[in-house]
């Protein structure tokens, strides 16, 4: 028996959806209303079962041809993707919690006219503008079954960008004027409000924040390279060698040393390669080994609920 696929239709789909909702509501109710001992048992049990699934899915070797893990005709690899989808649905719900948190905090700031309340007004304006124009533009993608036909040449509902009544057709069929949903024509960039907000405002502000990093690197490097200890001196000398070894000027400084002679290792680019390849890389790998093993131990502790006292008090 192959694990049932997700391609359900009609009554099967609705039964599966209601069943999933029922199970989820049941677990939530159990966690919410049960006493602490039961709550803990439910959480520990769910964590163990979820971990066990991925443990088996990773450790049981897959089939050579399909490269999928199948145990007793149960396809664990396909089931893993179904569980992944379920996790995404849960994450979608928690996004609402995040939005609630933002609205609550900024709403309070405006209501009490705390310092910087105008920034919170800017938050609401930006938030609403993005939500309204994104939804107005893209709602067809989600809800209108005919939408693919509007943009597919040859279909009866196709909106021809070159047509004489193109604008009115768009307004009629998409319930959105061109300044809200600019149909892509001749590979030209869209010019609707959402695109303007995203490409013209958000992207640039994002790039501005990233560019700040360049200045901060300079100030952080200045503090790190101030020679106040022996370690700082070693760091400074190494940094100068590596920096010079990366640029043509540094290579020019030592290019009088023969490239194939006995002393070729003293050329700056050679020293640079030695520092990066023989010192820096092994150290990074060593740290990586430690982190990998630490992550493995941590994952085991979370899976087996051994992180006592770290998240919730003992017995709570």
């Amino acid at each position: 028996m192959q694990f049932p696929s997700l391609q359900l239709a009609g009554s099967e789909f609705w039964i599966a959806a209601l069943l999933a909702l029922g199970v989820a509501a049941g677990i939530l109710a159990l966690v919410h209303f049960a006493n602490n001992q039961v709550k803990r048992a439910v959480i520990v049990g769910c964590a163990f079962l979820a971990g066990l699934f991925y443990f088996l899915e990773f450790f049981i070797p897959p089939d050579l041809k399909s490269e999928e893990v199948i145990v007793l005709r149960w396809n664990l690899t396909q089931t893993g993707s179904i569980i992944g989808n379920a996790a995404q649905v849960i994450a979608g719900f928690t996004f609402l919690l995040g939005i609630y948190n933002l609205v609550h905090i900024h709403g309070n700031i405006i209501r009490r006219l705390r310092g910087g309340w105008i920034n919170s007004v800017a938050f609401f304006a930006a938030f609403l503008a993005m939500v309204v124009f994104a939804f107005w533009r893209d709602w067809q993608n989600w809800f209108d079954p005919l939408y693919p036909n509007y943009i597919t040449p040859g279909k009866p509902e196709f909106i021809d960008p070159k047509g004489a009544t193109f604008a009115s057709q768009v307004a009629d069929k998409l319930w959105a004027p061109l300044w809200v949903n600019d149909i892509v024509k001749d590979h030209k960039p869209r010019q609707d409000v959402y695109t303007l907000l995203f490409e013209g405002v958000y992207r640039n502000m994002d790039a501005t924040m990233f560019s700040i990093l360049a200045f901060y690197i300079v100030s952080a490097a200045y503090r790190a390279f101030r020679i106040r200890t022996r370690e700082a001196a070693v760091l400074m000398i190494t940094a100068v060698i590596v920096m010079l070894g990366q640029v043509p000027l540094g290579q020019f400084l030592t290019n009088w040393i023969p490239a194939d002679g006995f002393f070729h290792g003293l050329r700056l680019e050679e020293i640079n390669q030695f520092v990066l390849g023989q010192i820096n890389s092994p150290v990074q790998r060593a740290i990586g080994f430690g982190i990998g093993l630490g992550g493995l131990a941590m994952a085991l502790r979370i899976w087996l609920s051994l992180e006592r006292g770290s998240y919730f008090e003992e017995g709570s």
């Binding site: 060593a286 740290i287 430690g290 982190i291 093993l293 630490g294 992550g295 131990a297 941590m298 502790r301 051994l306 992180e307 006592r308 006292g309 770290s310």
Partner: peptide, 17 residues
Amino acid sequence: GDEYYAATAYLTREPVL
């Protein structure tokens, strides 16, 4: 490095950790 994952063991002194 792995000090990061040793944090809870260090802070709680829990023998299992």
